[in-house]
Each structure stands twice: as C-alpha cells, then as structure tokens.
Simulated assay, not measured.
Amino acid sequence: MTLDHIVPLDGFRALAILIVFVAHCGLERLIPGGFGVTIFFFLSGYLITTLLRSEYAQTGRIDIKAFYIRRSVRILPSLYITLLLILGISQWLPAEHPAEFWGVFSQLVFLTNYPWITGYAQGVTGPPLWSLAVEEHFYLIFPVVFSAILAALSPRKAAGLCLGACIAVLGIRLATVATISDIGQVYYWTHTRIDSILFGCCLALWQNPVLDKGAWRPRLVHVLFALAILLGCFAIRDELFRQTVRYTLQGGALFVIFSYAIQDRGWVSIALSTRPLRVIALYSYTLYLIHVPVIAGVHALFPTLGLLGIIGISGALSMLYAAGMYALVEQPAANWRRRLRSSSRTAALAI
C-alpha cells in the first residue's frame, strides 16, 4: 500500500459516489446523498494532507507550483470535456433554461457554490459542481498554509490548528443561520462546509495510520459509537441541526471510521478493497460529473421507467462514459502527474 494508493480509500470513494448516485436516481428521502459528498470531502482532506506531509518529510519543502499543476491536470480535462459535451448536446434539445455565458463561466472557474457572484446566471444543466468548487477552493489555499505554517509545527499542533479551524467554521455556520432566511444555502458555501475537509486533514496530521508509528487504533466499540452518531445525524430531520452541528458530528465520526478501516487487516479491509469497488473508485470523478445529466436523460427518454430501470440504465451509461474518459484522458494524465511528482522530488533532493 503506497501513499498514492491507500487501498481502503478506494472503498470509501466508491461508497461515496454510489450513495450520491442512488440518491439522485430518486431515493434521496431514504439515502443520505449529502453524506456521500461529506465522505468525499473527508477523504480529500486526508489524502492531500498525507501527501503533503510525505513530500515535506522527504524534501524539506512543498513544491506549490507542481501541486497546482498536478491538481489542474487531474481535475480540469475531464471537467471541461464533460461540460463541453453536455453543452453541445443541449443545443439540440429544448431547454426551459438555456445555458448563459456567465453561468458556464462560473462552472469553469469553480464559483457555482456562490451563484450571486455571476448574477445567478444559468450554467450547463446537470453536473453537481458546487462540491467540486468547495474542494478546489481548499486545494487553492491549503498547500500554501501547510507550507508556510503547518509543516514546521509538530503534527499535534498542526492538527490542533486544523481542529480549531473546524470549530471556527461551526461558529460561522451558527452565526449564519441566525442571520439568513434560507439556511439551506449553508450546505453549499465553502466557508460553511470546508470543515468537512479539514477533519480529514486532522487525521492526516495527528495519529495518521500510514505515517505515524504507533498511531491510535480505534477499537470496535469506538467504531460502533461513531456509527451510532452517524445514524443519529440521519435520523434527526430538524433543519437547524442539519445545517449546523450535523457536519461537525459527521466529521468526528469519520475520523474514527477512517482510522479503523485504514488499519484493519480483516473483513473490513477485504470489503473495502473488492474489485467492483476498486473499479468504481477508479472512475468516481467522471461518474460524479456525468451521472446527473445521464439520469435526467434516462428520465426524459423513458418517462414510465421504474426506479430499478433508472438505476440500471443510468448506472451502465455513466460507467461506460467514465471508462472511456479514464482510458483516453484520466489514465494518461495520471501517468504524467506521477512523472511530475517523481521529478519534482528528485529536483528538491538535489538542491
């Protein structure tokens, strides 16, 4: 298991996209689709911070430029190709709200979770890009903060600062819901959701299962308690709770669950590393981009199709598109990113 490929994370990545996909197919009242996004957030924070820690330990510095290049090559090609494809198809279909320039622009530059900036202009219908915007805002800021402040601190102090930031974001959420009428907007904004990523950073900085010898290993009772917290978050429907404390409780619970799963060598590890989940994880980014437009298209073409039919056809079409994108775009880009990371580390060690 390498830092670039921590096997249990494949399972979490696959479960996250499956939760989101099934919810969007019409089961959102039973399946907590938003929790799938929260899993994505936590995973991103953990993985990126783990890689940054490793790079700093090996080279004594963080190559910010190389980081931004790698993230751009990872994110932008699939995103722009998918948006262009959907935009092209939409020109041949009747649309109640056709795409507008500033709406598409906001999607291209990751502003969709702050739609007022571009005057609420209509973008390409379909891809749920608000969550991608939150992650990209994190990627833009966090490596600089890590390089300038966190890298020089002990892991405990660095994690403490991230935890303090999580508490500050909770305070921002509480203050925000007290001053706005549509508190559901808290779900989308970077400054009110970024703590879901920062909780993953906390695990990467303190008691990291793959970097820290003797890292804390949760016992089964801890995992059961964490699962009980998650179930409670799903069961409580009060909107004030859901848009404030829920994300904090979920972040703490995921800290325990991720730590346990990454260190497990039993049935949990086996379940998270099965081939179907690994394949879905491999395609997860493009699946996230394409599944909503595909579901909408299946609904339009087969209006009387049942739920299982929608899930089956939409899933097959989304996987087919994602497999093609992986072979033609993502895999070549990944190979290039690995070469870039290797060359940047070699150059830094030679200084």
Rank of each mutant, 00 (worst) to 15 (best):
I270Y: 11
T59W: 13
P115D: 04
P276C: 03
S314I: 12
A133V: 04
L51Q: 10
L308N: 15
G309V: 11
R74W: 10
S72H: 07
F105C: 00
E28M: 09
L320N: 12
A316Y: 07
L231K: 14
V298R: 05
I236V: 14
A215K: 09
P128E: 12
N335R: 15
D63Q: 02
C166N: 04
W189E: 07
D238W: 01
A158I: 05
L282E: 08
Y188K: 02
S318H: 11
P128F: 04
V292H: 08
L83K: 00
L76S: 07
T346P: 08
T82L: 09
R71F: 15
E55V: 10
R337A: 13
P128Y: 14
P218W: 12
L198S: 12
L301C: 10
A323M: 10
R173N: 07
S147W: 11
A151L: 04
S54N: 13
V144P: 02
H137T: 09
P115E: 01
G164Y: 08
P293Y: 10
Y188I: 08
D10P: 02
V221N: 12
I149V: 10
V177D: 05
G312L: 13
A204H: 04
P32R: 03
F302P: 09
G306M: 09
V104L: 00
Q185P: 10
I19N: 01
P143D: 15
F110I: 07
L83P: 00
Q122R: 01
F110C: 02
G164R: 02
T49Y: 05
L307S: 15
C201E: 03
L51G: 12
P128M: 14
I290E: 03
R193L: 04
L328C: 15
R29Q: 02
L289W: 07
V268Y: 09
P155A: 15
G232L: 11
S343A: 15
G34L: 01
I75V: 09
L174N: 05
V298F: 08
T190S: 15
R278P: 08
V177H: 04
S54P: 03
F199V: 08
I236L: 15
L230I: 12
F21K: 00
S284C: 10
E100P: 02
A316S: 15
H5V: 05
I197Q: 03
R242M: 11
V7R: 08
L320C: 14
Q122T: 00
E135F: 03
A316K: 12
A133C: 04
V329A: 11
V294M: 03
L289K: 06
G164V: 07
T244C: 02
Y68M: 11
V245S: 03
V268A: 13
G324E: 12
G123N: 00
F21S: 01
I117E: 03
P77H: 09
P94F: 05
F21Q: 01
R173D: 01
S343V: 15
Q122C: 00
H291V: 01
N208P: 06
H222N: 14
G315Q: 08
L287E: 05
V169C: 04
T112K: 02
P32I: 00
V20F: 01
L277A: 07
R156T: 04
I262D: 05
V329D: 13
V144L: 14
T82M: 09
L9F: 04
V37G: 06
G184H: 06
V7H: 06
R345T: 15
G160D: 06
L30D: 05
F41D: 01
S54R: 06
K157P: 01
F241H: 05
A323V: 03
I236M: 13
L308Y: 15
